[in-house]
Structures are given as C-alpha cells and as structure tokens.
C-alpha cells in the first residue's frame, strides 16, 4: 500500500516537460520592426490637453474655494457625520446579509408560503427606489404612533370568547424608537436584504449537489450542512457582489439626508454649504469623503476576495511547490 502510493504516477504530467527528443538546432532570435500606432498617440495627446484644462480649472475657478473646503471638511459635525455614514453602512449590511440568508433559505425551502413571501419581499424592495423607501420610512410614524406587542387580532377574537380587555402586553411609542436614524437604517437594511437574498441564493445554488449528498451520507443534519458545507462554498460566489453591495451601500447612506437624518455626513456638508453660501466647496467635500471611504473599501474587497477564492489559494501553494 504505502510503497504503491509513493510511486503513484500522478506527478509526471505536472512536472517539467521531458527533454525534446529531436536534436535542437541553433535558432536566430526574431528582430522585426514592431507595428506603430500613430493615431493612438494623437488621441492620447488630445486627452492630455483636456486633462490639463480640467486641472487648470480646479486651481483657477474661485467657486471651488479650496481653503474654505479644507477648513470645514474636518469640522466636528462633519467628522461625526462620517462616523454616522460608516456605522449606517456596517449595520445595514450586517442586517441585510442576515436577512438575505433568511430570505434565500426561505426561497429554497420548498414550502409554498415561505417561497411566496420571500419572493414578494424581494419583489417589493427591489422594485421601490431606495430614496423613496428612505422618505417612506421617515414618515412611518404617520401609520403607527404606537406599537403594541401582544397576540394578533385580539380585538376580534377576545369578544368572541367572551373575554374582556385586550391581549396586549406592552406598547412602544414609535416616535421615540423610530428616530430618523433608525428609520433610515431600517429602510436601507430591508432594501439590502432583498438584494443580498438574490446574491446568496445564487451562491447556494452554485454549490454542486454532490456536496450536500456527501454531507448527508456522513450523517450531517440539514442545518449543519448549510453552515459547514454549503454556505462556506457559496462564499466564493457571494463575496465579490457583496463587496460591491457594501460600496454601493456606503454611497446610499447619503439618502439618509432625505429621511431626514440630520447628523448624517451629506446632510451636514449641505447644511454648512447653504448656511455659508459656499454650496459648491461642500459638495466637492462630499465627493472627496465618499471617494476616500469607498477607496478604503475597495482595497479591503481585494484582500477578502483573494482570501475566499480557493483557486487563487491553490495557485499560491502550487507556485511554492514549483509545479505549473
């Protein structure tokens, strides 16, 4: 057995090619004149001139008011706004991903009620613009001023049973719980849940059925198979679009300004702009802040994708091993 495996003939195919059986003759290196592309150089020249014009404008147009922007870009309310943007991004993505897993599992459950509810949810939240959702959730207090926690439909069935009073245990004032921030967060996470559900469903369906069967044959329960076998493999498919979703979410937190969430970054920048009549510098400041934040996320995305891609991981090990 052991002797056999040592001589297992698997390596030659991957090893260096055997010596060429034909005798090698001296070869003259090719020294040909490469093809030139003058039109590309002309185009490059035009682009360069346009770029120079743009940079020149940045420095000469007074509307930019760079010193003012620089001074206010790091003022305390703005920095707090950056914090709100980041926390809203992280929280809504976490809730969105958990919700997405739940919705995807519902969608694949085979139970007609769960499938339909999951489908309707996705249909609604993917069909309504996030801006509309943000404003809608900001006005949710119109619908409910208080939320009662208790048994459903008590006002119908309690009288039928001859009972008095109600089956409500405690109540919540919507206006205190559903602050602007909470309403906006809810809008963003519920919307994200719908998108993540589709991404995770695609990921789960990308895992070969043989994987589930092998795990079943080993005696693993359905929950364990999902957690230990299917989800980790779905990650490879799920991670790249989730990175894009996170970047998109960071930008969409600007929609919180319309809930309105007054402590939010874009709201703060605009507030400074309108109160000082320096609207444009503050809009540029917004661009710079969002660009900086998304750039950091893109770098993170690169490393996470590399970590979760088994092909690349394998490639690295193979390279170390010397084969290929």
């Amino acid at each position: 057995m052991k002797d056999r495996s040592v001589s297992t003939p698997t390596e030659p195919a991957e090893g260096p090619a055997p010596d060429n059986p034909q005798p090698s003759r001296p070869a003259e290196p090719i020294a040909a004149v490469p093809v030139r592309y003058p039109e590309r150089w002309v185009a490059a020249g035009v682009v360069l001139v346009l770029a120079a014009m743009f940079v020149h404008m940045l420095f000469t147009n007074d509307a930019f008011n760079w010193p003012f922007m620089w001074e206010n870009m790091f003022s305390e309310p703005v920095l707090r706004g950056v914090g709100v943007t980041l926390s809203a991004t992280v929280l809504s993505m976490i809730i969105g991903i958990l919700l997405g897993i739940l919705l995807a599992v519902m969608r694949l459950s085979g139970n007609p009620v769960l499938v339909t509810v999951s489908w309707l949810y996705t249909w609604f939240f993917r069909g309504v613009p996030r801006l509309v959702l943000a404003v809608l959730f900001g006005n949710l207090a119109i619908l409910y001023s208080t939320i009662h926690i208790g048994l459903p439909f008590d006002n119908y069935w309690m009288p039928l049973l001859g009972l008095e009073g109600d089956a409500r245990f405690f109540e919540i004032d919507v206006r205190t719980v559903l602050s602007g921030y909470m309403a906006g967060l809810l809008a963003l996470s519920l919307s994200e849940g719908a998108y993540m559900a589709e991404i995770i469903r695609a990921g789960l369906q990308s895992v070969n059925k043989g994987q589930t069967e092998a795990a079943q044959a080993l005696g693993m329960s359905r929950g364990k198979i999902l957690r230990r076998i299917t989800l980790p493999q779905a990650m490879r498919v799920v991670i790249p679009p989730t990175g894009n979703e996170t970047i998109a979410m960071l930008k969409d937190t600007a929609l919180l300004a319309y809930v309105p969430v007054t402590i939010e970054l874009f709201y703060q920048l605009q507030a400074i702009g309108t109160s000082t009549y320096q609207i444009f510098p503050m809009l540029v400041a917004a661009c710079l802040w969002y660009l900086a934040a998304t750039s950091v996320l893109m770098v993170g995305q690169y490393f996470i994708e590399r970590r979760f891609n088994p092909e690349q991981r394998g490639a690295r090990i193979r390279t170390v091993g010397g084969a290929h």
């Binding site: 043989g210 092998a214 044959a217 080993l218 005696g219 693993m220 088994p310």
Partner: peptide
C-alpha cells in the same frame, strides 16, 4: 442523519469538500 452516520458512502465523483483540506474533510463529520 443518525441512521446514515453508520453507513459510509463513496461517490463516483469523490465529492470531497473543496474548502477543506484532506484532513479537514476526514475530521469534519
């Protein structure tokens, strides 16, 4: 699952878990 855990199965297409090492595959269950 409990019944299956007493029956080993080997598949035509191996069906090893690609995200686990050889040892990881063996100790998983």
């Amino acid at each position: 699952a409990a019944q299956r855990s007493d029956i080993g199965m080997v598949f035509q297409r191996f069906n090893l878990f690609p995200h686990l090492t050889a040892l990881g595959n063996i100790i998983e269950a």
